[in-house]
Deep mutational scan, measured.
Amino acid sequence: MVYKIRDKETGKVYEVTIDEETNEITVYDVKTGKPVKTVNMTIEELKEAGYEVEPV
């Protein structure tokens, strides 16, 4: 599923895909559409880390 996340401190917005089964999150560069990095976190962990998470 695709989400937009926003860093509450910097205001930067990222587009991510989240595999609900493995909790693998792939972060994409919004301008190029290319993957930047992959992390292993849940949506709740993202929120605790200071991100706003919205489904696209």
Rank of each mutant, 00 (worst) to 15 (best):
M1P: 15
M1R: 14
M1A: 10
M1Q: 13
V2K: 15
V2H: 15
V2N: 13
V2G: 11
V2M: 13
V2L: 12
V2S: 13
V2C: 15
Y3P: 02
Y3F: 11
Y3M: 14
Y3Q: 07
Y3H: 09
Y3E: 02
Y3N: 04
Y3I: 12
K4W: 14
K4C: 14
K4Y: 14
K4T: 09
K4N: 05
K4G: 01
K4A: 05
I5W: 04
I5V: 11
I5G: 00
I5R: 00
I5F: 04
I5N: 00
R6W: 11
R6K: 11
R6A: 04
R6Q: 07
D7R: 01
D7E: 09
D7N: 11
D7C: 15
D7Q: 06
D7V: 03
D7K: 02
D7P: 00
K8M: 08
K8T: 08
K8C: 11
K8H: 05
K8Q: 06
K8D: 01
K8I: 10
E9D: 09
E9N: 12
E9P: 01
E9Y: 12
E9S: 12
T10V: 00
T10N: 06
T10M: 01
T10S: 09
T10H: 02
T10D: 03
T10Y: 01
T10L: 02
G11K: 03
G11D: 03
G11C: 05
G11H: 03
G11E: 02
K12A: 13
K12Q: 14
K12S: 08
K12M: 14
K12Y: 10
K12V: 12
V13S: 07
V13T: 08
V13F: 07
V13D: 04
V13M: 07
V13R: 03
Y14W: 13
Y14R: 00
Y14L: 04
Y14H: 02
E15C: 15
E15N: 14
E15P: 04
E15A: 10
E15Y: 15
V16E: 00
V16T: 01
V16I: 15
V16W: 03
V16P: 00
V16F: 07
V16K: 00
V16D: 00
T17Q: 07
T17M: 10
T17Y: 13
I18C: 05
I18Y: 15
I18W: 15
I18A: 04
I18T: 04
I18V: 14
I18S: 02
D19A: 05
D19T: 05
D19W: 06
E20L: 13
E20Y: 12
E20T: 14
E21C: 13
E21S: 13
E21F: 11
E21P: 04
E21W: 09
E21K: 13
E21R: 12
T22Y: 07
T22N: 12
T22P: 01
T22V: 06
T22Q: 08
T22D: 03
N23V: 05
N23E: 06
N23H: 09
N23P: 03
N23T: 06
N23K: 11
N23L: 07
N23M: 08
N23A: 07
N23C: 07
E24T: 15
E24R: 12
E24K: 11
E24Y: 13
I25K: 01
I25W: 04
I25L: 10
I25H: 01
I25R: 00
I25V: 08
T26A: 03
T26L: 06
T26H: 08
T26Y: 06
T26S: 04
T26K: 09
V27W: 15
V27H: 04
V27P: 00
V27A: 05
V27Q: 04
V27L: 15
V27R: 01
Y28E: 01
Y28Q: 04
Y28W: 13
Y28L: 10
Y28G: 01
Y28D: 00
Y28T: 07
D29F: 02
D29N: 05
D29I: 03
D29M: 02
D29G: 01
D29W: 04
V30T: 13
V30Y: 11
V30D: 14
V30A: 11
V30R: 07
V30E: 14
V30K: 08
V30M: 10
V30F: 10
K31Q: 14
K31D: 15
K31M: 14
K31N: 14
K31S: 13
K31A: 14
K31R: 07
T32Y: 04
T32D: 07
T32N: 07
T32L: 05
T32F: 04
T32S: 08
T32H: 03
T32I: 03
T32K: 01
G33I: 01
G33E: 02
G33A: 05
G33M: 06
G33Q: 06
G33P: 00
G33L: 05
G33D: 02
G33S: 05
K34T: 09
K34A: 10
K34C: 14
K34G: 04
P35A: 13
P35E: 08
P35D: 03
P35N: 05
V36W: 09
V36L: 15
V36M: 10
V36F: 09
V36T: 07
K37F: 15
K37C: 15
K37E: 06
K37D: 05
K37A: 15
T38M: 09
T38L: 08
T38D: 04
T38C: 13
T38Y: 07
V39G: 04
V39I: 15
V39C: 15
V39F: 15
V39T: 05
V39R: 03
N40F: 15
N40I: 14
N40V: 13
N40A: 12
N40E: 08
M41W: 07
M41K: 05
M41P: 01
M41Y: 06
M41R: 04
M41I: 10
M41F: 08
M41A: 08
M41V: 08
M41N: 03
M41Q: 04
T42E: 01
T42F: 02
T42G: 06
T42D: 04
I43H: 02
I43Y: 04
I43F: 09
I43E: 02
I43M: 09
I43P: 02
E44L: 08
E44Y: 08
E44S: 10
E44A: 12
E44H: 10
E45S: 09
E45D: 12
E45M: 11
E45A: 09
L46M: 07
L46F: 07
L46P: 00
L46T: 00
L46V: 08
L46R: 00
L46I: 10
L46W: 04
L46G: 00
K47M: 13
K47C: 09
K47I: 12
K47N: 06
K47H: 07
K47G: 09
E48A: 13
E48H: 12
E48P: 01
E48M: 12
E48I: 10
E48N: 14
E48G: 10
A49M: 14
A49H: 12
A49C: 15
A49D: 07
A49G: 07
A49L: 13
A49K: 11
A49F: 09
G50C: 05
G50Q: 03
G50V: 03
G50E: 03
G50P: 02
G50Y: 06
G50M: 06
G50K: 04
G50S: 03
Y51R: 01
Y51M: 04
Y51E: 01
Y51I: 02
Y51P: 01
Y51S: 01
Y51F: 10
E52S: 05
E52D: 11
E52Y: 06
E52I: 08
E52P: 02
E52G: 04
E52M: 06
V53L: 10
V53W: 07
V53M: 07
V53H: 02
V53D: 02
V53Y: 04
E54I: 11
E54V: 10
E54K: 04
E54R: 05
E54C: 14
E54F: 14
E54D: 07
E54A: 07
E54G: 05
E54M: 12
P55R: 09
P55I: 11
P55G: 09
P55C: 10
P55N: 09
P55K: 10
P55V: 10
V56T: 09
V56Q: 08
V56K: 08
V56Y: 07
V56L: 12
V56R: 08
